[in-house]
């Protein structure tokens, strides 16, 4: 009775050890949502800074994602939202800066090889011509980019 139990236990420990070493090892089915909260091993998401936006102007925020895993992943969704601005009179609202849906190439889902960084498409950003506040002149908006992925088949 004890022997089978110890065998199962050793398998369990082996598996647990693998989780610690590789957060989303190929052999595991683990939701690594923790990665999205900044835990080591999550997707690295960044983008090209956009400068010189004016009312009615549109810019393209190119998205860059790093796959830290030892297997390819497919990026299934990319989005962005405003979190802050540098000027008190310029609120972080869509009336001042609007973020569109992911566009460009590659289309989603986009495959990223194991351990590689890829330049993906872009999020269109623009200042609505009529609603952007005058106080937004010279302001810097901070956008948070979010990306989700699944293991590539």
């Amino acid at each position: 009775m004890l022997k089978p139990l110890s065998m199962v236990l050793s398998v369990a420990l082996l598996v647990t050890g693998a989780v610690i070493a590789y957060p989303a090892d190929d052999a595991l089915a683990v939701d690594v949502t923790l990665a999205a909260q900044g835990a080591p091993g999550g997707l690295g998401v960044s983008g090209s800074a956009v400068t010189g936006l004016y009312p009615g102007n549109k810019g393209q925020l190119t998205v860059v994602v790093k796959n830290p895993y030892r297997f390819p992943v497919s990026i299934t969704a990319v989005s962005g939202h405003l979190v802050a601005t540098s000027r008190p009179g310029c609120k972080a609202t869509y009336a001042n800066l609007t973020i569109g849906r992911y566009a460009g190439a590659p289309a989603l889902p986009a495959r990223i090889a194991a351990g590689k960084q890829a330049r993906l498409g872009y999020l269109p950003v623009w200042m609505p011509a009529k609603s952007v506040a005058d106080a937004c002149q010279g302001a810097t908006f901070t956008l948070r980019l979010n990306a989700t992925a699944r293991k590539a088949g």
């Binding site: 989303a24 595991l28 089915a29 683990v30 939701d31 690594v32 949502t33 990665a35 999205a36 900044g38 999550g42 997707l43 690295g44 998401v45 960044s46 983008g47 090209s48 800074a49 956009v50 400068t51 010189g52 936006l53 004016y54 102007n57 810019g59 925020l61 994602v65 895993y69 992943v73 299934t76 962005g80 979190v83 310029c90 800066l97 950003v125 200042m127 937004c136 002149q137 010279g138 302001a139 810097t140 908006f141 901070t142 956008l143 948070r144 980019l145 979010n146 990306a147 989700t148 992925a149 699944r150 293991k151 088949g153």
Partner: peptide, 17 residues
């Protein structure tokens, strides 16, 4: 495979003229 997802986020500046 269906259950495995990963996520990440980062911040990017957008500068108004």
């Amino acid at each position: 495979r269906a259950g495995w997802t990963a996520a990440g986020r980062g911040t990017v500046p957008v500068a108004a003229g």
